[in-house]
Write a protein that binds this DNA or RNA. Sequence first.
RNA 1: CGGGCUAUAGUGUAAUGGUAGCACGAGUCCUUUGGGAGGAUUUAGUCUGAGUUCAAAUCUCAGUAGCCCGACCA
Length: 408
Amino acid sequence: MKQSHLFAKTIRNISDDVKSVSHKLLLRGGFIFPVSAGIYALSPLGFRVFEKIKNIIRNDFDQFEAQEISMPIVHPARIWKQTGRFQDIGDELWKIKNREGEDFVLAMTHEEIAAYIAETIIKTYKDLPILVNQFQVKIRDELRARGGMLRAKEFLMQDAYSFDKDEKGMDESYEKFYESYGRIFKNLSLEAVPVEASGGVMGQGQSHEFMLISEAGEDKIAFCEQCGYKANIEVLANAKICQKCKIELKETSAVELGQTFKLGLKYSRSLNVKFKDSNGKDNIVYMGSYGIGIGRAMAAVAEIHNDEKGLVWPQALSPFAAHLISLGQNKESDRVYTALLKSGIDVLYDDRLDKTPGEKFTDADLMGMPFRIVISAKTAVNKKAEVKKRNENKVSIVSYAELNNILQ
RNA sequence: CGGGCUAUAGUGUAAUGGUAGCACGAGUCCUUUGGGAGGAUUUAGUCUGAGUUCAAAUCUCAGUAGCCCGACCA
């Protein structure tokens, strides 16, 4: 992609109201556009990061056959009334009416719809277990959107649902996602720690949150320094004492990156999701649900991986493999760009002739691609390229062939 | 949703009832071209609606939006 026509620009000035590091850097680097409080659009840069995150999740889910589906965002209120959540959830659930005056809700989560659909698919114990996953927009009329993408009113979420014939099966499915989440966060370069959590409006079953310890977080977790026990403080009784070690628990702020729930029969019972067992007898399906906020994950990465100059994307998440910068000429850099594209390397090419070197370097630092390649009149003479890693100061001069190898 | 605060150009600010100004940004042109370069020039604002007043950015009321604290938050 040529930067001269990229649908994203870095910005110098941002409002003092922008407080969190990730929000600031994502805005300055041109990754997101604010549209309304807690509502954001993605530039090609932000969009590419989203795709990287989604693919990391997909690749892991493929290992245990969590099947990707897509569910709607507009739900008839009827289904939410059946599970009781139409009434139980407060104003955070966004309610709308159609022209006939019928009630609908905007998806804040998809347990209802997943169960509603599963009811038509699941007939016999032979159909189970089933794991489904989707990446879909969630809409929550939050009282207070905060921290940019860390807490938005509309956000993309990976949400998966498991259907099993009994509690043991549910526990096994839960374990699969629990393990998977551990791997996924590692691949996202996020050190997430699982903690005991409350089910909240989802249900009362066992639940874990995957927490990134960070000042930017809104959650508080408690942990025992001796045995390593960790929990969201909302699940603790008044006594903030480790049950096992009898010592006081320490507290820290954290960002909730994902959460897993054992839903049990809560949704399947009210939506009548049944199957016949080997005796031909009706049983209720056990469900679980598992979610990761994609935008929040991107913000969390930005929150952690940066320096005073801007973002420093881990290679696996970077919108482009490299940032190619032309200085003083475009003739030779055009050739290098074309060659890199031909080799299948995804590169952002700063071909702007009216920008000074300083501005180009500053932009490259703000945007944070892992490799910066400079082609100038100086390097062109020798048919070499300058390569610098975003997180190092060292600059190497390499041949075009070597360049290809480094970026492959 | 409770409490507090704020609203002047894209951003940051000034004008304390009497001419809306400055800096940065952004646009154009020229010069410059290895770390947001220099010059010239242009652009753009009193959140909305009522009210008080000869006169309102300034005072009053309402609305809207944003920020902070709390509550809430699969």
